[in-house]
């Protein structure tokens, strides 16, 4: 799978504070106040309670979040190119894709 360089560079080292899965959407909140929203085509898999973002891999509609230590979350995007939203603590857009 290909590395999503743009998103990986942004989220790398951010510490997971909370994750919340609703039908069709996964929400990850980080300790710096930023929030990553991902629209999903299928149910979200179980999320680890803690972890630090390492990188994001993406190919087509498949997205993989790699967290330290040793967590790998595989997701199916609802609409590639229009499913991921990352905003900082002030709500400013950091990434959309």
């Amino acid at each position: 799978m290909a590395l999503n360089r743009k998103l990986s560079a942004l989220v790398q080292k951010r510490e997971l504070a909370k994750s919340e899965a609703t039908p069709g959407q996964l929400s990850l909140s980080f300790t710096d106040g930023s929030q990553l929203l991902i629209r999903l085509a299928s149910a979200a898999p179980p999320m680890p309670g803690k972890g630090t973002m390492e990188k994001v891999l993406e190919t087509g509609s498949r997205l993989v979040l790699v967290l330290e230590p040793e967590s790998r979350i595989e997701l199916a995007l609802a609409d590639p190119g229009a499913s991921i939203s990352l905003r900082d603590a002030q709500g400013t857009v950091e990434y959309l894709g």
């Binding site: 290909a2 743009k6 087509g60 590639p80 400013t92 857009v93 950091e94 990434y95 959309l96 894709g97």
Partner: peptide
Amino acid sequence: DVCVPGYSKKVRNVPIAL
């Protein structure tokens, strides 16, 4: 959001496959 300078650059993500 869209009127912030640099917005389009932040969100331009079209893979070659697409």
